[in-house]
Amino acid sequence: MLTVFFVPLVFINIGAIASPWLLFASYITSGIGMAGIGMGIIHDAIHGSYSKNQKVNKYLGYTMNLIGANATVWKIQHNVLHHTYTNIEGADDDINAPFFLRFSPHAKKNALHRFQHWYVWFFYGISTISWVTAKDFVRLARYRKMGYLNKKNEFRDEVMKIIGWKLLYYSYALIIPLLMVPLAPWIIILAFLSMHFVTGLLISSIFQVAHIMPDMEFPLPDKDGVVEGDWFAHQLATTTNFAPRSRFFSWLIGGLNYQIEHHLLPNICHVHYKKISNIVAETAREYGMPYNTKRTFVSAIRDHVSVLRKLGKLQTIVVRQ
């Protein structure tokens, strides 16, 4: 995946590409590689499960910074908030959407939401360009207010690191190509954006399909901030697998089609998910707990769309304690 991402960019940076179509093809190929790095390398590394050697995990986690995002922000957003509070409105950052998207029945509804199953794909596509520009700074500031990054100078140091890594990323991904590629700047910028659109669409689809699906629960805490049930039962009630028989697809997306296994056992590398999935499924059945799975990714996307449509029509659910 590192090769798929970097090799096309090397050819772009040395000015070896002069055709608009070849430029777009190169950037889009890099976009596939970027998504692969995110799902197959970074995801495991920041969970501490890529290698038994935590130094290997640490340095491979920095590949997130190398592609324009930030490992510290992702660790809080994903490892802490998403994995602890899956599908809980206001706590799980994966469903805390802007006003024009509604991923939870407890979120406030507006007239735009009735069309979200049509336009959500555009916003999935632009999600990573937002990520590598402003989102990391916005989230870092919010996480500081939430009590994270409270060591002396930790917030300031992280801001400086984000700025430095993003300057490096934009230098090799856009600025040098603008200087080296003998094409109009607007063509190069559009090709760069196409890379991010492919990456955003792939990553957002994979992560959102795992939780915004039929039969998924969206529990809320009681007045004391306690969610009913235990954490393992919560993960089974809020997560689904998809396309479990496709080995190539599973490799391509870093095993994230086995989301149940990942959420229950996030410290296990994704290469083992398929082997343990039968044990997890049998145990869930033994104790009368849900084990949600979709046969194909296409059927999962179809069900995801149906939920988005339903959320666009459904009135906000008010839970009174």
Rank of each mutant, 00 (worst) to 15 (best):
A91N: 04
F103G: 03
P98I: 02
V307L: 08
H106V: 06
F24I: 10
Y50M: 12
H43K: 06
W231D: 10
H272P: 00
F207P: 03
I28K: 05
S306K: 10
Q315D: 15
L265N: 07
T29V: 12
K145W: 00
V4K: 08
G33W: 04
S51Y: 09
F155L: 13
N150C: 05
I301G: 07
Y85I: 07
R102D: 10
N87A: 02
A134P: 01
H304P: 12
G255D: 11
H117Y: 14
I163H: 02
K274P: 01
I88A: 02
V73I: 15
S130L: 15
G312T: 02
Y124L: 12
I12W: 03
N267I: 09
F297I: 06
S205K: 03
P98A: 02
R285W: 00
V280G: 01
P177R: 05
M160D: 00
T84V: 05
V132F: 04
I162V: 14
K294C: 01
Y148I: 06
A107C: 04
Y169V: 03
Y172D: 09
V120S: 08
P105E: 12
G38T: 06
P182Q: 03
I276A: 01
H234F: 06
R245T: 10
G40C: 14
T238G: 11
A91V: 00
I189D: 00
L265E: 03
G225D: 13
E286V: 01
A111E: 00
N13I: 00
F197N: 02
F207E: 02
T3S: 11
I163D: 01
K152W: 09
V4R: 07
I188H: 07
T86N: 05
A233T: 15
I129S: 13
I46R: 06
F99Q: 06
M213Q: 15
A281I: 01
I206M: 07
I17F: 05
T72R: 12
M213S: 13
Q208W: 00
I12V: 14
L190P: 04
E286R: 13
V209S: 10
E261W: 03
P266N: 09
Y172I: 08
W231A: 08
F24S: 06
G15I: 07
N57Y: 11
K275I: 08
T240Y: 03
G48F: 09
D94C: 03
G147C: 09
N110E: 12
Y169R: 06
V80Y: 15
H234G: 09
W251V: 01
G40A: 15
P290F: 08
Y291V: 02
N65H: 15
P266Y: 05
V318D: 02
I175P: 14
K108V: 13
L168A: 11
Q315P: 00
Q77E: 11
I41Y: 08
T293L: 04
S204Y: 00
A243I: 04
T316M: 13
M1G: 12
I14H: 03
S171C: 10
L202K: 04
G164K: 13
I260T: 13
T29P: 02
K52G: 05
Y27R: 04
L9K: 06
I95G: 08
L23H: 05
